[in-house]
């Protein structure tokens, strides 16, 4: 994945969490492998001149802490408002990132949320996976991204 797009997600993560949650996030160097398992994931897809998806992946405790920062309330993971908050975070990170895609015309899906202990997100196999490890006061989480120009061949993994 081109550095432009990795930087787009890195900046989007920092901007969204800082602005909406007052949480400063340190985004580490990208790695090309997924983590072992997550409990909560918010997923947003891209279509148009760029195709792919971004998944914000959390352990339950981290997700609960972040949802509390976002909404101002403790919300149980089985409450629909919990999934709503995680989905909106994914929506804002995806939307903010795509505004940094060098003027490309890209559409955003409505977000999906997966809740379940130890799950993995398997994205499209024809694109390289970039995993951005993130740490903040609420805990650690990952943002897993697959992305390529529409119709392009496989690009090199970051």
């Amino acid at each position: 994945m081109e550095e432009l797009y990795v930087l787009a997600f890195r900046d989007a993560i920092s901007t969204v969490f800082s602005t909406m949650l007052s949480v400063e996030v340190q985004v580490g160097d990208p790695v090309a492998s997924r983590a072992n398992g997550y409990d909560v994931s918010g997923i947003i897809s891209f279509s148009g001149e760029m195709v792919g998806a971004a998944a914000l992946c959390f352990e339950a405790g981290t997700a609960k802490n972040l949802v509390k920062s976002f909404t101002g309330m403790e919300i149980a993971t089985d409450d629909p408002d919990f999934a709503d908050a995680i989905g909106e975070l994914a929506n804002m990170v995806g939307g903010n990132a795509k505004s940094r895609f060098d003027g490309k015309n890209v559409n955003l899906s409505c977000p999906s949320v997966v809740i379940g202990n130890g799950h993995q997100i398997h994205q499209r196999k024809d694109m390289p996976l970039v995993n951005l490890p993130c740490t903040c006061s609420a805990g650690s989480f990952s943002v897993e991204v697959t992305l390529k120009e529409s119709g392009s061949e496989l690009s090199a993994a970051a």
């Binding site: 602005t19 939307g95 903010n96």
Partner: peptide, 27 residues
């Protein structure tokens, strides 16, 4: 009030009759 921040989208919204624009995330 939207994540759609690209200039082309803002112009599209203004043409459709929007009066003001706030990009998410917002303070």
């Amino acid at each position: 009030v939207t994540t759609e921040a690209e200039k082309a989208r803002v112009v599209e919204a203004i043409k459709a009759g929007v009066n003001n624009y706030v990009i998410k995330p917002f303070t």
